[in-house]
Computed example of a mutant assay.
Amino acid sequence: MKTLFDETCIGTLQLRNRLVRSATWEAMADDAGRPTPRLVRVYRDLAYGGTGLIISSATTFSGDATRVPGMLAIPDDSYIQAYHELVQTVHREGAPIVMQLVFPGRNGVFWTPSDPSRDEIHSIARGFRDAAFRAQRAGFDGVEIHAAHGYFLSQFLNDKRNTRTDEYGGIVRNRIRFLLEITSEIQARTGETFPILVKINCSDFEEDDGVWEACQSACSKLAEQGIRAIEVSGGISHMPFPPQGLPYEESVFRDYAAEIARITDVPVILVGLNRTPSVLTGLLNTAGIGYFSLSRPFLRQPDLARYWRKNPDRPAECLSCDACREQPDGNVCPFRKSLVGEK
């Protein structure tokens, strides 16, 4: 029987358990997007707390990128050393770390698929490539492409939001083209052994959005390209979560993730209200889902992995109240307790 605390590998990533910290905006980068000592401490606590794999918060890669306050960035080589120090801190505590890369838009505007020209699309793909290479040089163990939650790249999958009439819009093959080109660019620059993960929406949960069909096709093609893992999410950031109509109170995208696991041969990571070890263990052994990522529970319990190892019958303490987003000093849980043995 598989357990949440099996030691496994995702490509070259060696994981001490199946619990993943999903990308979480911390609002703690400096004004230029570099990690601060306070932010490094957040990642150290996650690693020290036993997390199997850490995915960084969304990181932009162009100097004119649209960013929210405290958002990470890696627009040029001068940022590499700051990230190298963050990575070393995480590695000393025994966890691998992956940088999530995102393109929201430029000059304060959140882009839609209709905004860029073909040349700009190609330039963005090269931007992902160059940022991934910087992450590799900084010591990150891989990168994750953010193609979920209704942001720019995610919208290409949506048949209603993607109104392009060229080779990047219309039929499913065209709507997934940009994502596949990005991964190909990264592979060409970083090499075949450097892990690339993709976070993708199973659905935007809009009527007839076509996202599920595009998701299945994209995941199949990504697996053929050699992607190392697929993180299955859903919904749009500014809409209520979880989306209406799902039959579960926990692990809400489980059926979609199970289907992606069935049609591909790469590890699937499920995100979305993962709260109870027994539920996750059941999915691990019956649905083909290999890993489980969490966001808000790690804000309250950065040592959640250690806690669940000792208390397998206890759910996460997170109440999903979103008080973390209302704090004046960053995205932090007001109910967080200090780690036992915290350094």
Results as ranks from 00 to 15, higher is better:
H122L: 15
P104I: 13
G108A: 03
E120R: 06
R137E: 07
N107A: 09
G108W: 00
R137I: 08
D115S: 09
A135W: 06
A131I: 10
S117Q: 01
G108S: 05
Q136F: 01
V109F: 12
A125M: 12
G94V: 08
F103S: 06
V98K: 00
P113F: 04
L101A: 03
D119Y: 13
A125I: 11
R126S: 10
R126V: 10
H122K: 13
F110C: 13
S123T: 15
A132Y: 09
I121H: 08
A125L: 11
M99P: 03
R129L: 02
N107Y: 06
V109H: 07
P116N: 04
A125S: 15
V109I: 13
A131F: 14
S114V: 11
F110N: 11
A95N: 02
T112L: 10
A132S: 09
F103K: 04
A131W: 07
A125K: 14
S117H: 02
S114Y: 03
R106Y: 06
R106P: 03
W111S: 04
D130L: 13
A132N: 04
Q100H: 06
E120M: 01
A135M: 07
D130T: 13
R106D: 02
I124N: 10
D115I: 13
G127F: 11
G127R: 13
F103N: 08
R129P: 10
F128S: 07
V102T: 10
S123W: 11
P96H: 02
P104G: 10
A138L: 03
A135C: 07
V109S: 09
P104K: 15
R118P: 05
